[in-house]
């Protein structure tokens, strides 16, 4: 399962991930991180069984945690199932199933590459 962390000013300089790993013993993979002087946005991958524990641990430290259950929001009216999103996705979120595009949950890292690649402007990130 993927988690998106929104780290507020004030705590962004703290070793949050390290302390959560020590507390939970979870194997955490950092998929994407953009951190500046005042805030941060981080996407983590955690095994499903540790997901709840990790989420609670971050939340107790004042971090906003969003479960990325839906990979991206797709406007079904606009999607024509062309496939322009498939090969450009760094994590292979999209694939054809009988020539209809399906998105697998748990792969998206909210990078937004598909949003600009979609000719029909049918895709939108979960948060933004």
């Amino acid at each position: 399962m993927k988690l998106m962390l929104r780290v507020a000013p004030g705590i962004v300089r703290k070793p949050l991930i390290a302390s959560v790993i020590l507390e939970t013993g979870a194997l955490i993979n950092i998929e994407r991180a953009s951190i500046d002087a005042v805030s941060g946005e981080i996407v983590l991958d955690v095994s499903d069984d540790k997901c709840k524990q990790v989420k609670d641990a971050f939340e107790s430290r004042g971090v906003d945690v969003i479960l990325l259950e839906i990979p991206v929001i797709r406007n079904e009216e606009e999607c024509v199932h062309c496939g322009a999103c498939i090969a450009i996705c760094p994590t292979g979120t999209f694939r054809f199933d009988d020539w209809k595009v399906v998105a697998d949950p748990g792969k998206c890292i909210q990078c937004g590459a598909c949003v600009t690649a979609c000719p029909h402007r049918a895709l939108q990130l979960v948060l933004r």
Binding site: V80, H81, C82, G83, A84, A87, I88, W99, K100
Partner: peptide, 13 residues
């Protein structure tokens, strides 16, 4: 190298 289409085979059908 991964391939993907830009036209829709679903809609062609």
């Amino acid at each position: 190298v991964p391939t993907a289409s830009l036209s829709s085979f679903h809609m062609a059908r």
